[in-house]
Write a protein that binds this DNA or RNA. Structure first.
Length: 748
RNA sequence: GCGGAUGUGGCGGAAUUGGUAGACGCGCGGCGUUCAGGUCGCCGUGUCCGUAAGGACGUGGAGGUUCGAGUCCUCUCAUCCGCACCA
């Protein structure tokens, strides 16, 4: 600077130096819980080990990181940790393509992705980082499986899957292309398969009920709440008991409370508990079997092709009309869950289509006139009571794949299905699996499959299905609360640690708006573990006090995809502009709750902003150093610029106030705009002073530098590298102040 | 088919939640500065009519509520995203 030239803005150098400093200071380690302090556990989503961080991740973690840094600056203890959801089909496919084992594949991917995330400067506590495919982690899935099995919340059922006879393997939907196997292109058929299910239905009603409290808490955003409502799928209506032709009664439901007289049939879910006994010794039992094994192919989702079984049963009409025939159809499940409903063709399009198939064209019903026409709704029949149904259904958690958490079950010839005792966990997954796409590599491993029965000690075979990644996600947010040094303990010990009580419930989840199912499942399991005991300290069973669901990054109004050639590569952006610019741009470009339509102009704008701030700040510092306009105002006659300095102060106050508000609400785009606006105001202030007086007096300059310093402080959460570097430049070698300015105190 | 969103200039997007639509920026045009590497400053920029002052029309479309609607209601059109062995 002594030669008169100012340092140019070099993001690559600045960011490398700041990141080295953070590493050295271990700056983002979650603090010990020994000291009583306000605490926040901020949970980012655990990405799949795809091999590359995409721009959507950058958006998600930029929002979370900005919030985490803001909270730390306000003096709160923050737990912001990261891990990979590393089991799953894509890892198997990646391993096949690369000729390596899935464990090598995910390790390679994770290493690269961590490098990308570090380069972006996210303030994760890396010591707490995890991979869900580490035995030390997936033992949680196994423990949870046994715990829920014991509580009756995991059960055995049957499901249908796509099967390729040639490859002797189960196929995922994405592996079926036009009804053909992705690998051998032979026709695929649906088969029935025993499956493990998670009984989420046990907690649907409570999850629904608690939404009110979550909404009242004010830190669940509307998007997240709406997605919970959607997942739960609450339907309000009436239920009533109808007498059957065999003398037994059946409880049926309908949301059309004023049209009960228009019912023409009763539709029952194939999963309804009564269906099993009805089908015994019935001619239509095989039809039902076909319906069940037929599964729900995409082509038969529509009501007019959906499988339908006509039973020999009828139920008395609730209003004394013709008896109602009983049919079994899976169209019930998607609308009302595993229940029985009144079929009312005149109120429901699906029912109308079913009626057409049952009775031919629907003729004018002889039942009373449409109640809406004469205004007076007919009273519901006696015995009818208000009732609720939920669309959320139990879901399968087992997969016929090798790259997943082994299910801790053995099959013994004498004892049958035997859950392993928890002391025998974990059941280790062989790491040298080499999937080919044929068969099931895990089932073919004799060293894995053959075991002894924990009950009788005789020969037994292990379950070779693994758990779906969804199941891992149920608990992934728990062990992160515990420091790595404690992670080796038994789960019972870990669950008893104060760390869990200190960090839970998690203050905020920041995740994509497609995470509704995950969050719902996590809320369900938390309630289960509350009732079972380990999470009993979470009285309301809510794992997350707050939740922000952001929308995705799109381009040209469409989802990014290689196929469309509209993919934005974060690495290229970071190389060209630096991490600060990229982070600022994704925050600035749109409100988190809105989809971000990518355009170059946001990056351009942010780059210019940062560079101008850098140049301007250094020019002002140099001016002070060179003693320009160092005269105090007292020696210059009347103070003609006092009102401008006052106004600058006012602007600073307003800016801090607004930015603080924005950050509390996670309105990052608005916060960035307000930061930028403050810079405009600082420049405007200088311009006005110069217009008034022709030069800055000492007080003017100090006010300006003070404002710039404040600007750098509030910029830290958004663009941490450059902001800290600016503070360092202004500090003259002293400590830098990165605490959050108190909106009340700025001007005093 | 079912479900969820979104429609504002050439473009990205604002609008204190019912009160002057188009903030801020990109792009474009003009002037100046600098002249090589995506410089900086100032001015202009919704559409149409007009030399101008000025006027008319304008938030996908059609109705409605209101003193007043981008915002609330009804219908409609278009686009996007999901639909459970992808995570």
């Amino acid at each position: 600077m002594s030669d008169g030239t100012l340092p140019p803005y070099d993001p690559q150098a600045i960011e490398a130096s700041r990141q080295a400093d953070w590493r050295e200071r271990d700056a983002f380690r979650a603090p010990e819980i020994a000291v009583e302090a306000p605490r926040k556990y901020i949970k980012p989503s655990a990405p799949f080990t795809s091999g590359n961080i995409h721009i959507g991740h950058v958006r998600s973690y930029s929002i979370g990181d900005t919030y985490a840094r803001f909270c730390r600056a306000r003096g709160e203890d923050v737990l912001f940790a990261f891990g990979f959801d590393s089991f799953g089909l894509p890892a198997e496919l990646g391993a096949i393509a690369g000729g390596v084992s899935p464990s090598d594949w995910v390790a390679r991917c994770a290493e690269h992705m961590i490098g990308q995330l570090e380069r972006l400067g996210f303030s994760f506590d890396w010591e707490r980082a995890f991979m869900s495919s580490d035995a030390n982690m997936y033992r949680w899935s196994q423990w949870l499986f046994l715990t829920l099995l014991d509580a009756g919340l995991v059960y055995r059922g049957t499901g249908t899957v796509d099967w390729c006879d040639t490859c002797q393997t189960t196929l995922a939907t994405i592996q079926v292309e036009n009804g053909e196997c992705w690998r051998c292109h032979k026709t695929v058929r649906l088969i029935q398969q025993p499956q493990w299910y998670l009984r989420i239905s046990a907690y649907v009603a409570e999850n629904d009920r608690r939404l009110e409290d979550l909404a009242a808490g004010g830190i669940w955003d509307e998007n997240a709440l709406a997605s919970q409502r959607f997942v739960i799928g609450r339907v309000d209506g009436l239920e009533l008991d109808l007498d059957g032709s065999d003398g037994e009664t059946l409880t049926v439901f309908t949301p059309h409370t004023h049209a009960i007289g228009l019912a023409r049939f009763v539709a029952v879910s194939p999963r309804h508990p009564r269906v099993e006994e009805w089908a015994r010794d019935q001619v239509w039992a095989t039809e039902l079997e076909d319906l069940r094994s037929g599964g729900l192919e995409r082509s038969s989702r529509e009501a007019h092709t959906m499988p339908l079984v006509q039973t020999d049963r009828t139920l008395a009409s609730p209003t004394g009309g013709e008896p109602l025939p009983v049919i079994i159809t899976p169209t019930v499940d998607g609308r009302f869950g595993a229940t029985a409903i009144l079929g009312i063709p005149e109120r429901d399009r699906t029912d109308a289509l079913i009626a057409e198939r049952l009775f031919g064209s629907v003729t004018e019903s002889a039942t009373p006139a449409d109640p809406d026409e004469n205004g007076a709704a007919p009273p519901p029949p006696s015995g009818a009571r208000t009732a609720v149904r939920y669309r959320a259904n139990d879901f399968t958690i087992s997969r016929q794949r090798s790259w997943g958490t082994p299910i801790p079950i053995v099959y013994c010839e004498t004892c049958g299905t035997v859950p392993l005792p928890k002391e025998q966990l974990p059941v280790l997954l062989p790491l040298d699996l080499k999937p080919t796409g044929e068969g099931n590599p895990l089932a073919e491993r004799e060293d894995f499959v053959n075991t002894t029965c924990p009950s009788c000690g005789g020969d037994a075979r292990r379950e070779t299905d693994t758990l779906d990644c969804h199941f891992d996600a149920l608990w992934l947010w728990v062990p992160v609360c515990v420091p790595p040094s404690e992670r080796e303990r038994t789960l019972e010990e870990i669950l008893a640690l104060d760390d869990l009580r200190a960090w839970l419930p998690c203050e905020r989840v920041v995740a994509g708006s497609d995470s509704g199912n995950f969050v719902f499942d996590q809320r369900t399991v938390t309630k289960a573990l509350r009732d079972i005991g380990p999470l009993g300290f979470l009285g309301d069973g809510e794992p997350f006090a707050g939740c922000l669901f952001h929308e995705m990054v799109i381009a040209d109004g469409r989802k990014m995809s290689k196929h469309l050639g509209n993919v934005v590569d974060p690495d290229e952006l970071v190389a060209a502009y630096g991490a600060d610019t990229v982070r600022l741009a994704v925050l600035y470009a749109a409100a988190p709750q809105r989809s971000l339509n990518w355009s170059d102009s946001a990056v351009q704008r942010c780059r210019r902003f940062l560079r101008q701030l850098w140049d301007y700040s250094h020019a002002q510092l140099a001016a002070r150093e060179n003693g320009e306009n160092a005269e105090p105002v007292s020696e210059m006659g009347a103070d003609k610029t006092e009102h401008l300095r006052k106004r600058l102060e006012q602007w600073c106050d307003t800016a801090v106030e607004k930015i603080t508000e924005d950050l509390v609400e996670l309105e990052m785009h608005s916060a960035v705009r307000n930061v930028m606006r403050l810079f405009d105001r600082v420049k405007d202030y200088e311009k006005r002073v110069l217009a008034k007086r022709g030069s800055l007096c000492a007080e003017d300059r100090e006010a300006l530098l003070g404002a710039l310093q404040l600007l750098a402080r509030v910029l830290v959460p958004f663009a941490p590298h450059i902001a800290e570097q600016l503070l360092i430049a202004a500090s003259d070698g002293g400590e830098i102040d990165t605490t959050w300015p108190d909106p009340q105190l700025v001007s005093r």
